[in-house]
Simulated assay, not measured.
Amino acid sequence: MAAETLDAVPAAPDRAVHVLDNPAWHSLTGRHAALSEGNEIARRYLPEVSPFAAVRSWDDPDVWDAVLDLVGPGQLFPVSGSDPALPPGWEVVARGAGVQLVETDALRPRPDDEAVLLGADDVPEMLALVERTQPGPFAPRTHELGRYVGLRRDGRLVAMAGERLQPGGWTEISAVCTDASFQRQGLATRLVLDVAHHIHERGDRALLHAAEANTRAIAIYERLGFQLRRRTVFGTVRTPSR
């Protein structure tokens, strides 16, 4: 069987390897190690925390066995930012183009007095908002990855943002979403700036990921002071059935 690949935009050949080239791995083996499982080659978040996973390097000759040992036969495994040639029996299930954005000096974070901290008691509302708005994967314990905040109207959660991946010195702003009835009021912008403020307070810098097709969100992030660092790919492969 011919090798199957995931299309990706390759990094510049002279660019040094950076934690942001493999942010999930550095998060899983760093601050979020206690929320992960796996081995020295492949790791994933606990399923109730997040569906994200990563490998140390797709060039490692033992990587395929390590992934198979981690998730089992016939299971899904996410692939991002790379273009591995799949061995026989492995299948590409999904692929999509994305972008990675990082803050610049133009970003002006600020706390929002109306933002409320969200936690375990708010999970049903958080999951319902995610279901309505589809900002990306969100599990019952995703809020444990970092600080999540929201805005309420008449007691109802209508906007949210928080922290996801935390590779050394960086924190990803994620789950940015607003209920359709409350969009174009600047609520998401306020929450992004609030989350970024608290990221700065602990000495990190902020980054974001977005689907390449989500041009409206990307334009908003760029106006806030983020810039494109790299184009990437988000994909999913299925391990072979034994």
Rank of each mutant, 00 (worst) to 15 (best):
P135F: 07
P135H: 08
P135L: 11
G136D: 05
G136E: 02
G136M: 08
P137D: 12
P137Y: 11
P137L: 10
P137H: 11
F138Y: 14
F138P: 02
F138C: 07
A139Q: 15
A139I: 13
A139P: 01
A139Y: 13
A139D: 14
P140Y: 12
P140K: 04
P140A: 12
P140I: 11
P140N: 10
P140S: 06
P140L: 11
R141H: 15
R141W: 14
R141P: 10
T142Y: 04
T142D: 02
T142I: 11
T142R: 02
H143P: 04
H143T: 07
H143Q: 06
E144M: 12
E144V: 12
E144R: 15
L145G: 02
L145D: 01
L145N: 05
L145R: 08
G146D: 05
G146V: 05
R147T: 09
R147M: 13
R147E: 13
Y148F: 15
Y148W: 08
V149L: 09
V149F: 06
V149I: 09
V149H: 03
G150H: 02
G150L: 01
G150T: 03
G150S: 00
G150Y: 00
L151F: 06
L151R: 13
L151Q: 11
L151I: 05
R152I: 00
R152P: 01
R152C: 03
R152Q: 04
R152S: 01
R152A: 01
R153E: 15
R153Q: 11
D154S: 10
D154I: 04
D154V: 09
D154Q: 05
G155Y: 09
G155P: 01
G155F: 10
G155T: 11
R156Y: 07
R156D: 07
R156K: 12
R156H: 10
L157Q: 09
L157I: 02
L157G: 03
L157H: 08
V158Y: 08
V158R: 01
V158W: 07
A159E: 11
A159L: 08
A159R: 02
A159M: 09
A159G: 10
A159F: 06
M160Q: 01
M160W: 02
M160F: 07
M160D: 00
M160I: 10
A161I: 12
A161P: 02
A161K: 00
G162I: 14
G162Q: 00
G162D: 01
G162L: 09
E163W: 04
E163V: 12
E163D: 12
E163C: 08
E163S: 09
R164W: 13
R164M: 10
R164T: 09
R164V: 05
L165D: 09
L165T: 08
L165H: 08
L165C: 14
Q166R: 15
Q166P: 03
Q166I: 10
Q166C: 07
Q166T: 15
Q166H: 14
Q166E: 14
P167W: 00
P167L: 14
P167M: 12
P167S: 13
P167K: 03
